[in-house]
Design a protein around this nucleic acid. Structure first.
Lengths: 246, 246
DNA sequence: TGTACATCAGTGAACGCGCGTTCACTGATGTAC
DNA sequence: TGTACATCAGTGAACGCGCGTTCACTGATGTAC
């Protein structure tokens, strides 16, 4: 997941504007805008029926088109799903990267800011969140093109960890062991060696904890106990920052 | 979630044997066994199509029955889903409680044992895991009857925390704040005051982290980086135990 | 600038499929006397 | 123990619906000369 981060994946890769052309033709503009409309309608659909129940015919209906017309824009339902997934990963990724870019903060405060930013996005877009972090859509296999966008969030988290004062408090190489150490080393070298393996592993653990918290909140596990979960989240994030070495 | 734990919910509540009768009639036995067969076939279905794609007709087909016959056993598809959900919660719950019951361990070792036991169940039953901890099935609202079984796992975790030596290392009442402290106090009193609010909150956080880790592993977020995730999990669990106060 | 041709967007009908649920029904299993 | 009746299990047909995808088609938009 962590190994690709190409900037040009950000747009979603479905109606990439023709590179050479300076200005688009009317047809090109219409196509781009209708593609966006289709994705917007599909996103609205997700709200009601979830990823598994997404229906091309319903999307077409919402847009006042005939269902076969959608095949001018997406070769199949799965391709539309892929586009939505990539868009969602890029949306969270962007939010996370933005929070990382806040310059006036300590690494600790920045980590906390990233966590809250990601949760904010998740609360505002629960169905897109479920699309990418919930149970996999049955019968759908995510293509390679999702890997880059999917890795933006973990990379943002790891970037924060890389900024901390070198030599964290309670960590040594021998802790990881040979298997985990090897896996972590492979990833860090793929990333260009910007962080040590131990830091990477801490980041990955923090990443899973963050999303564990958000998933439980969104998927209703806190119902009837910690129902407005803001304070629980706030408290947990502070604890997690400590665990992560910040 | 945490407030109900009735032992008689454990069986699933769908074909409760008639209480007064000492021995069941042939009809009753046949009914119980076919009910179990239906649930087993439905569970097998989950493997292939996920919760959203579960189909009564397909279940009936697998059993060599006609689809309308299923209505003698479950009044609707949603009721069948509910039975599966309750069974799944009870299955993990039982596994967790069993691990808690291991007597010869320190609280720290017991916490770690529970975590590994739960992960073991999840790896062995990934689709039932997704059913209860993945994105909610669209259009399905979990009934009250799921609450009791759903709370067995968190209660087991909290039970372990309650066993630790009183007065944990780094925790004070003032940390929680008024809102979170109030929520936690409400839950602890509902539980009969067996643990302090701070311990409860730690337990809840540990609970979310455990399932965050398992979800990421099962839902494929570690693909290509920490792919056999055993060592990562093992390492993370040790860290989490520390955070939880053990 | 105007015309001829190629490209593309969207239509409407059709194919073949699966779904949940209902209903009147035939037999088998149980119960009361 | 045997018979009459009630209960229940499972059948098969039907209702009404929605789905993804293909295909030949009409018009509109673009391009080359």
């Amino acid at each position: 997941v962590l190994s690709f981060l190409a900037r040009d994946l950000v747009l979603g890769g479905c109606v990439a504007p023709v590179p050479g052309k300076a200005s688009a033709t009317a047809r090109e503009r219409a196509r781009a805008s209708l593609t966006a409309d289709i994705k917007a309608a599909a996103r609205r659909q997700l709200t009601e029926v979830g990823a598994g129940g997404l229906s091309l015919r319903a999307v077409a209906r919402e847009l006042g088109m005939v269902s076969s017309a959608l095949y001018r824009y997406f070769p199949s339902k799965d391709e539309l799903l892929t586009a939505l997934i990539i868009d969602a990963y890029n949306a969270v990724g962007e939010v996370a990267e933005e929070a990382v870019g806040l310059s006036a903060l300590t690494p600790n405060a920045r980590w906390i800011a990233v966590c809250h930013a990601i949760r904010g996005w998740a609360l505002a877009n629960p169905h897109e969140y479920a699309l990418i972090y919930g149970s996999p859509v049955p019968g759908y296999r995510a293509p390679e093109a999702t890997i880059g966008p999917a890795s933006r969030v973990p990379l943002a988290l790891i970037a924060v960890l890389g900024q901390r004062a070198a030599g964290g408090p309670e960590m040594s190489s021998s802790d990881l062991g040979v298997v985990l150490g090897g896996q972590a080393a492979a990833v860090t070298t793929a990333l260009g060696g910007v962080v040590e393996p131990e830091v990477l592993v801490r980041g990955v653990i923090g990443w899973t904890q963050l999303f564990g918290m958000i998933s439980f909140e969104l998927f209703g596990q806190f119902a009837r106990t910690f129902d407005p979960s803001d304070e629980l989240f706030k408290f947990a994030v502070v604890q997690m920052a400590r665990l992560v070495g910040l």
